[in-house]
Structure formats: C-alpha cells, structure tokens
C-alpha cells in the first residue's frame, strides 16, 4: 500500500540565487499533498545528499539557472551512489539547454523540466515516478 506521503527535497545547489522556480514548484508539490523540504540557497551537494538520507526522501529536485547543472547533477548522483541511495529519484529544472538533457539523463537524472513547464505536469510525473519506485521496492 502506498500509505506514506511522498517526501521530496527541493534544493538550490551552488551559488545561484534564482529561487522563484524552486519555491513555486515546492509550493505546488506541497499543495498536491507531498511533504516538501525546501533547502534554501547555497547548498553543497554534500549537504543536499545528507538531508536526503536523513529525511528519508523519495526524490530530490534540483533547480539550477546558473549553467552549472552538469557539475551539480553529477555530484549529487555520485554522492547518492556512494551512500547506497541511488534509488532516490533525481530530477530538476531551470535554464538547461535541450542539448544537455541527454547527457544528464545518461548520468541518471530522471527528468528535466524547462521553462514554461506547468506545475501540474511536475506533480503528475513525480507521483508516477515515486509509485514506480515503491512498487519496485516491494517486488
């Protein structure tokens, strides 16, 4: 049974201060009934991963508008792996050129939501992704 509420971190890695998108998404996920931990600005990948494990989350969403997305997604995914927590869903958004998406996906990023994405699309996607993850766990 999918009793537990979906728990998700919305994080701003690095030095980028553009938090409008992250906050709007965090609020929309919360309004959709999820438990949302919003980290605030200037999180290191280490801090994000530590929070993810401590809070036992289903997913980590990274918002990056500074162009440093390759770096931060890679760091977060590698750290999750080294903690044995690679089953945590990693997704993200921001100003991320389309051409960069395939390499992010190859790295293990499950979805990248660009500008203009509706929050309901993100909510639906995350619900499905978490459902899938939990089903796998029970197999």
């Amino acid at each position: 049974m999918d009793e537990r509420k979906i728990r998700v971190i919305v994080a701003k890695p690095g030095l980028d201060g553009h938090d409008r998108g992250a906050k709007v998404v965090a609020r929309a996920l919360r309004d959709a009934g999820m438990e949302v931990i919003y980290t605030g600005l200037r999180q290191t990948p280490e801090q994000i991963v530590a929070t993810a494990i401590q809070e036992d989350v289903d997913a980590v969403g990274l918002s990056i508008l500074s162009g440093a997305h390759e770096h931060y997604f890679r760091e977060v995914i590698e750290l999750l792996k080294s903690e044995g927590a690679e089953d945590i869903i990693v997704f993200g958004g921001g100003v991320i050129p389309e051409g960069d998406v395939p390499s992010l996906k190859a790295m293990g990023v499950k979805a990248v939501f660009g500008p203009g994405t509706s929050t309901s699309e993100i909510v639906e996607w995350l619900k499905n992704a978490v459902h899938e993850r939990r089903t796998k766990e029970h197999v």
Binding site: G14, L15, D16, G67, A68, H71, Y72
Partner: peptide, 18 residues
C-alpha cells in the same frame, strides 16, 4: 559576486558561468 576566489571549494563548477 559572493566573494570567493576561483580556487575556493564553493566556486567549483561556477567559475565564468554567468
């Protein structure tokens, strides 16, 4: 903008980006 030199650990991945 945040007062770190390019060799600071917090600057990793961000140097020259924006």
């Amino acid at each position: 903008q945040i007062g770190y030199d390019s060799d600071h650990p917090m600057a990793r991945g961000e140097v020259g980006k924006v």
